[in-house]
Design a protein around this nucleic acid. Structure first.
Lengths: 338, 338
DNA sequence: GTGAAAGCGCTAACAA
DNA sequence: TTGTTAGCGCTTTCAC
C-alpha cells in the first residue's frame, strides 16, 4: 500500500510537498504538482484516513444518530442523508439506538471516540436543555424535529422540521370539513414531550376552533411508536364499541395498522370510519384504499439537514433552521360523515 | 480531551500500561487495572479511534454496501447488522449504491480509502467471477445471496442466504396444492442472473412437477425491483384480461403492489386471485387480508453475516456459508381455486 | 516554492 | 508485571 513517503521518494521531493499537492494547497509549482499526481496514480496511492484524521485531529466524518430506526418514515430520510454526505465527500457514521436510550449521551460518546465533526439527529426529543447538549461539543442538526420544549437558543443548534402542530391542525380540520365530529386521535403519548404531544395540540386546537368538545375516550395512546402497538390499541377499543367516525393518526405506519384493526373488526374504510395521517411513506400509496395523508418532503428533509451541517462546519453560518411544509395527498380513506 | 498520556501521568504509570488495560490485555495486575480504569472514568477518557487504527495499521471498521436500499426487505437486515457490529465493537460504514452500479467496484474503492477490514454485501449479483472479486482484497460476506451463477470457490468467499429455488418451489407448490393451475409469477427479470432468475426456476420446477404447462404470458417481468414497477406491470395486464387465479411474487413489496393493482381492477383477494410471496417484511402483516408469505429470518441473516465476518477476520475460519430456511406464514391471501 | 522536523494518540515490540 | 521506545501516515509550522 503506497504512502506519501513512497511518492515523495519516487518523485524525489519531500513528503510535505506531496501532502500539499494532495490537499490542493496553493503554493506548489505546476510542475511538481503534476509530477506528484502522476506518481500517485501510477503507484495506486489512496490516502489513509486514519493518519489524516489523527494529524488533523479531526475526521471527515459526521454521525447520524437514529432513535427508533424501525420507523419506516426514516428509511427514505436516512437514504437521502447518506447520499448527500457521500456527494459532499464526507463519511457518514450511522448509529442506531433503542427507543429508550438517551440520544445525547450516546451521541456525545460517539463524537469523542470517532472524532466526528458534526451530527445529525433523527427521532430525538423536543426538550433538550442547553446543559445536556453542551456535552456534544460539535454542531448538530435536529432532523424532523426542533426544540419546542427545551431552552436552546436558536443560534446554538440547527433544525429541519415541519410545523407539527399546524400540520396536525390541518389534518384534523380536513376531517372536520368532511363532516366528522367524533374524531379519534392515534398517537404515542400526549405527554411524550415530542412529536405526539405537538400533534395532539394541533388536533385539540382544530376541535376547539370547530366547537367540538374534546373526548378523552377518543384519545388512543399506544405508549410506543410501533405498528403493533397501534394495531393493538385500536383493536382493544373496537372490541367494545365504535363511536367515532374518523381517526387522525400521527404517523402513516400507525394509520396502516389502524386500518388493519378496523378491517379485522369488520369495519370498512372510509364508509364506517375515515382516516388521515401525516408522513407519506411509500407503503401508504399501496393500502386499500390509498391512505389520505400529509406527505412530508422526506428527501428534502435529509438533504437540507446535510446542507445546514456543512454550512455550519465550513463556518458560513453558526446555525440554521428550516421549516418545510407537507403536501396533502388525497387518497381514498376520508369520506363524508353520515 | 483526555488521552492515555493524561491517564498515565495521573496514575503514575506508563502509557503502555494504560493501553494494556484499555485493550484488556492479560498481564496487568488487578491493582493497576482498577486504578487506571477509575482514572479513565474520572477524566472522561474516550479512546481516539484514528490513532488506534493508525497504530494498529488497520481500522475496526467493516463496510456494508447496499444496492437498492429502497427495498423494505433490507431495513431490518441493515438494522441487525448495525446492531451486531456495534455489539462486537466495530464500526460499520454504510454505503448505499444505485441499482445500476457495480457493487464490487464501489466496494473496492471503499475498502482502500477507509481501510476497511471486511465487507458485507447486500443486494449483490449472484455471478461474481474470481477475477473481479480479487480487487476487494478483504474478506466479504454475501448477505441474502450466494454465488450461484459465478465461479467462486466455496473457500474464497462467505454467504448467508436462503435457498431461493427451493423456497420459490415451495411457494408455488402451496398455490398448486390449493387447486391453482393458472399461476402468474411476478418478478424483476427471468434473466437477471440473480434472485428473480433463481426463484423463477423454482416456480418452473413446481409447475413441471405438477404437470402444469408454463405459460409465458403469465410471467410478469417488471424490469426493476420496485413497488411502482410491480403495480404498473400488473395493472397493464389486468386492463386487458385476467386469466390466472393466483400470483407468486418474488418479494413481499411486489406482492403488496400487486394486491393494490388487483383491488384497483375490481378484483378481490383471495376470491378472484390468490397471492403468495417470499420475505416477511413487517408491513405484510398489515395488508388486508394479511399476506401469505414465506418469512425470511431477517435478523438472523444479519447477525450471521456479522458473525461469519468476525470469524474470518479473527482467523478462526477462512470462509463460512450458512443457508437458512423460511417459515410459512399463512395469512389470508391464498384461497382455493374455483 | 520546497524541505526538515515535530508531533497527532495509540500499539507493540523489547527490556527490565 | 511494568516501562521505554519506535513507529503507524499524515499535516503543519518554521526555515530556507
Amino acid at each position: 500500500m503506497a504512502t506519501i513517503k513512497d511518492i515523495a521518494a519516487y518523485c524525489d521531493v519531500a513528503v510535505s510537498t506531496v501532502s500539499r499537492v494532495m490537499n490542493n494547497h496553493p503554493d506548489v509549482s505546476e510542475d511538481t504538482r503534476s509530477k506528484v499526481l502522476a506518481a500517485a496514480r501510477k503507484l495506486h496511492y489512496v490516502p489513509n484516513n486514519s493518519a489524516r484524521d489523527l494529524a488533523a485531529s479531526q475526521t471527515d466524518a459526521v454521525g447520524l444518530v437514529v432513535r427508533g430506526a424501525e420507523n419506516p418514515f426514516f428509511t427514505r430520510i436516512i437514504r437521502s442523508i447518506e447520499r448527500s454526505c457521500a456527494d459532499a465527500g464526507c463519511t457518514m457514521v450511522l448509529h442506531q439506538i433503542p427507543v429508550g436510550a438517551d440520544e445525547i449521551e450516546r451521541a456525545a460518546t460517539l463524537v469523542q471516540s470517532k472524532r466526528l465533526r458534526g451530527l445529525i439527529l433523527l427521532g430525538g426529543r423536543y426538550d433538550y436543555t442547553s446543559e445536556e447538549v453542551s456535552s456534544l461539543r460539535v454542531p448538530y442538526v435536529c432532523c424532523t424535529y426542533t426544540n419546542h420544549f427545551g431552552d436552546l437558543s436558536r443560534e446554538s443548534f440547527s433544525s429541519v422540521s415541519i410545523n407539527d402542530k399546524a400540520e396536525a391542525y390541518r389534518a384534523t380540520k380536513y376531517l372536520i370539513d368532511h363532516g366528522h365530529q367524533r374524531i379519534a386521535v392515534l398517537l404515542d403519548s400526549i405527554h411524550d414531550r415530542s412529536i405526539s404531544e405537538r400533534r395532539y395540540k394541533g388536533y385539540c386546537e382544530a376541535l376547539a376552533d370547530a366547537n367540538i368538545a374534546l373526548d378523552e375516550h377518543l384519545v388512543f395512546e399506544t405508549g410506543e411508536f410501533s405498528m403493533e402497538a397501534a394495531y393493538k390499541r385500536c383493536s382493544e377499543y373496537l372490541s367494545s364499541k365504535q363511536d367515532f367516525t374518523a381517526i387522525f393518526a400521527v404517523a402513516d405506519s400507525m394509520a396502516i395498522a389502524a386500518m388493519k384493526a378496523l378491517s379485522d373488526a369488520g369495519l370498512a374504510v372510509p364508509h364506517d370510519c375515515s382516516i388521515i395521517a401525516i408522513d407519506g411513506i411509500e407503503m401508504s400509496l399501496y393500502t386499500v384504499p390509498t391512505l389520505t395523508t400529509l406527505v412530508q418532503p422526506q428527501s428534502t428533509l435529509g438533504e437540507e439537514a446535510v446542507r445546514i451541517l456543512r454550512d455550519v462546519l465550513s463556518g458560513a453560518t453558526t446555525s440554521g433552521h428550516i421549516r418545510l411544509e407537507t403536501t396533502l395527498r388525497a387518497g381514498g380513506t376520508v369520506g363524508h360523515a353520515h
